[in-house]
Amino acid sequence: MGEKLRVEALTLKGDTLRFILMGCDTAFANALRRTMISEVPCMAIEDVFIFANTSVMHDEILAHRLGLIPLKTDLERYVLPERCDCGSELGCSRCRAVLTLDVSAEGEARTVYSGDLIPEDPVIRPVNSEIPLVKLAPGQALKLEAYARLGLGKVHAKWQPVSCCIYQQVDERQLEALGIDRTEGVGKAFIFTVESTGCLPPERIVSEAVKVLMGKLEEFSEKMRRGELMEEIKEFEVVEEVGRGLYRVSAEEYEEEEEEEE
């Protein structure tokens, strides 16, 4: 404490942001890094309705490939499905965006690219239109509807807004080499590299991470003040929050297994 936080030498190259953070502890830098990776929401395809798929690729592999396409994200107009009040399993216009794909290969073989996805909301579109999904032979066809939702990287890596988010601690000599003025006398210094997948601008990811961490500390201090300290804690929080039938492992099942072992 006592030292002043400083941010210096912010540079932006494509989707990569670099900055130097000075005057904080490793714990603070690491909390920022971990939040950017796993708790800043971004869009990814979550549910896929396949009407026709005569390609050689199985439906589930295709759905997985669709999920991994980075999508442009709008955090103002969309909310996380678990925070949406619609209560619908398919979601509403605030918690999901629909993309459709209808391609068939007539005459000659063709590759289906991410750019063939037609977004219902023009903002929520693939970051790159040249990601190959599957190759269709003459006569094969693909028709599907994909539901994109906001999600967190801790649930699935497809919701990670950063492809790379690291920091490196540097000493005084290295800082001097970078031309940083050390007259104020700072503590530790970290060079951050934040590379966005393209879903959000990298500087937005940093400010969103601050917002998320701030919210957590706020919630914690509020609960401490109000004395809400006897809440039920389940063993597998994240898994149950997802709750789309795919990952569900309930706390009860886990306890039963333990009893059997005894």
């Binding site: 690491n30 909390a31 971990r34 796993s38 957590k216 500390l217 809440e231 804690i233």
Partner: peptide
Amino acid sequence: GGEGHTLLNL
């Protein structure tokens, strides 16, 4: 519940 190293280490 629902928190890990990110918050607790800080």
